[in-house]
Each structure stands twice: as C-alpha cells, then as structure tokens.
C-alpha cells in the first residue's frame, strides 16, 4: 500500500515520544481509574443495578479519558511548529489523519486493556466466555469511532483560540449517537440476557455504520481541516 510507510512512521514517532515521556498514557490511566472509583462512590457500587449501568459507566469513563489523549496528541505537533513542517512535506493529508488516528486508537486501547479488568473486578461483573468475542468487538467499534471523530475534531480545536477547551464542546455532542449504541451493546453483552443480546447486536451494526461514515468523512475533509 502506498503511503503505508508514512502512516507507520507517524505512529512510530508518536509511540517513541510517548514511551520516553509516558505522560499521556499514565495520566489517562490514572484518570480512568479515578473515574471508576468516583462512579462507584456516586452510584453506590453495592447495588445490583450495576449490571444495567455497567456499559454506561464504562463508556463515560473511556470517553472522557480519550479526550485527554486527543488533546495531547496535537499539542505535540503544534508546539515546535512540527505540524507546519509536516504540512510542508509532500505527504498526503489523509495519511496524516490515519497516522494520528491509529496512534490515538492504540493509546486508548493500551489504557483500556488495563482498565477493563480493573473495572470488571471493582464492579463485580462477569462476562461469559462465549461473549468475550462480541465484547471485544463492541469495545473496538466504539474506539474506532472515538478516535476517528476525535482526531478530526481535535485537529480543529487545537487551531482555535480556546484550544483544548473547545474539544469537549465539539466532540461530545457528535459522539453521543455512538455512545448510545456503545452503551446498549456493552450493556446487553454484560447482562448476558438473550433478548438484550439481540438489541446489542443491532447497536453494534449501528456502530459499524457510524465508524465507516465518519472514517470516510474524515478522510474526505481532513485536507480542509489541517491545511489552509
């Protein structure tokens, strides 16, 4: 694939820088765990209703955590004028999008791999062995949507006066449809109830459509967002 080399180089660069500073993943991780503890206190974790709320808690925590990473991701590019340097190069703009988007996706997943087991233990939830596949798929579909919409909108927000304050205002309302579906999907899977599983799969179909639409939109529009 042409351009694969450039996409990989952008991801690699972000990962190397992150491995050196560790500032982003660590703060995301601390934040997500804090969010879970706060939820457990605010909603009284002992109640059995957690099976119903589980999916919601999980995604609210992930959503807010993802915004920490999304904001950081372009601060690095902007700070020493690197974005300008990147734009002066002949590299296609959509490649920059896919590089940054995949980087954000990877960081989010690293955090989730650690956070999800903690979440399940803290809230005493179980996922049947046969449902682990769909559960992972639902998480992945949610993550793809978050990182594609998030990367597009954080590129916009970083270029506004209010910079990182702008991201939640633009990002959260646009992501709500995905959030609704993601909560339905993971909630249904966590409950393990057969009827709820049906609606969980319907929700996952919606998530797939949402992901594809916004990946295409971001691909088509990124040139206008990042260039001048």
């Amino acid at each position: 694939m042409s351009g694969g080399k450039q996409i990989l180089a952008i991801i690699k660069k972000d990962i190397i820088a992150e491995l050196r500073t560790k500032e982003m993943v660590i703060s995301m991780l601390i934040f997500v765990i804090l969010a879970m503890i706060i939820f457990s206190q605010a909603f009284n974790a002992a109640e059995k209703s957690l099976v119903e709320f589980g999916g919601g808690l999980l995604w609210v925590a992930f959503l807010f955590t993802s915004m920490l990473g999304l904001n950081r991701s372009f601060v690095h590019e902007k700070d020493e004028g690197c974005l300008e340097g990147l734009l002066m190069s002949p590299v296609d703009r959509p490649l920059i999008f896919f590089g940054k988007m995949l980087g954000n996706l990877i960081f989010l997943m690293v955090v989730e791999v650690i956070a999800i087991p903690i979440f399940l233990v803290l809230f005493g939830l179980n996922i049947g062995a046969s449902l682990i596949g769909p559960f992972v798929a639902a998480i992945l579909l949610g993550n793809i949507g978050i990182s594609s919409v998030g990367t597009l909108l954080s590129t916009i927000s970083i270029n506004t006066k209010t910079r990182d304050l702008m991201l939640p205002i633009l990002f959260l309302p646009i992501i709500i449809p995905l959030l609704i579906a993601a909560v339905g999907a993971t909630g249904g899977i966590i409950s393990g109830d057969r009827e709820q599983l049906v609606s969980a799969y319907a929700a996952m179909r919606f998530m797939a459509v949402y992901d594809i639409i916004f990946l295409l939109v971001a691909y088509a529009l990124y040139d206008f967002v990042i260039g001048e």
């Binding site: 506004t160 309302p173 646009i174 449809p177 609704i180 319907a202 949402y210």
Partner: peptide, 27 residues
C-alpha cells in the same frame, strides 16, 4: 473552513442521532 467542515459533520449526525434514538427506543 472549520465551520463548513463542522456543519457537514453535524448534518450527517442529524439522521444518525435519530437512528440512535430509535435504538434506545427498541428497549
């Protein structure tokens, strides 16, 4: 430029939001 991009995303989001609302209503 930003407004145009955001208006496009938002307009696409209109039917998606209604669809997602219906997902909820399934329950």
């Amino acid at each position: 430029r930003f407004s145009a991009v955001y208006a496009i995303i938002a307009a696409i989001n209109v039917p998606l939001t209604f669809w997602a609302g219906r997902l909820e209503a399934l329950k």
